[in-house]
Computed example of a mutant assay.
Amino acid sequence: PGRTVVAVDDSGTVLGTAKMNPNHMGGASHIASASFMVDPQYAGRGVGRALGEHVLAWARAEGYRAMQFNAVVETNTGAVALWESLGFQIMTTLPEGFLHPTKGYVGLHIMYQQL
């Protein structure tokens, strides 16, 4: 059972979106996960933070015990800093886990927060 939310401004312009869901099924279904997209032209305006705060509140309200992000690209320093400021920790980094279109193979963080 997942959920998708969309961030819009006063004119109805879509700024970004988040999809929340269990990270795994069965015995690991008490851990939430989420995916995010923010329109690059609205980066740095708090859209990601608002979506992140919403997703964390949703996970707590749904009774999840933690949230895990399976794939945060290490060169996306804005996202890494945002998630750390919201209480996530880098649990490990998969070396060369992501093929970046201009930087080549870069690390892929797994980030976690107990709720």
Rank of each mutant, 00 (worst) to 15 (best):
A57E: 15
A57N: 15
A57C: 11
A57T: 12
W58S: 12
W58H: 12
W58M: 14
W58K: 10
A59D: 08
A59E: 07
A59K: 06
A59N: 08
R60W: 03
R60G: 02
R60P: 00
R60C: 01
A61D: 12
A61L: 10
A61W: 13
E62K: 05
E62N: 08
E62Y: 02
E62I: 05
E62R: 06
E62F: 03
G63Y: 01
G63A: 00
G63L: 01
G63F: 02
G63K: 01
Y64R: 00
Y64Q: 01
Y64N: 05
Y64G: 04
Y64H: 05
R65V: 02
R65A: 08
R65S: 09
R65H: 13
R65Q: 11
A66M: 05
A66W: 05
A66H: 07
A66P: 05
M67A: 13
M67K: 04
Q68A: 01
Q68H: 02
Q68N: 01
F69L: 15
F69V: 10
F69W: 13
N70Q: 12
N70I: 06
N70A: 10
N70F: 08
N70Y: 10
N70P: 03
A71Y: 14
A71F: 14
A71I: 09
A71S: 15
V72C: 01
V72F: 03
V72I: 11
V72S: 00
V72L: 04
V73H: 15
V73G: 13
V73Y: 11
E74P: 09
E74V: 12
E74T: 12
E74I: 13
E74W: 10
T75S: 09
T75V: 13
T75A: 07
T75R: 09
N76W: 13
T77A: 14
T77V: 12
T77L: 05
T77Q: 10
G78T: 12
G78I: 08
A79V: 14
A79S: 14
A79Q: 05
A79P: 04
V80P: 06
V80M: 11
V80A: 09
A81S: 12
A81P: 06
L82D: 08
L82M: 10
L82R: 07
W83G: 00
W83R: 01
W83F: 02
E84I: 00
S85R: 10
L86R: 01
L86F: 04
L86Q: 00
L86D: 00
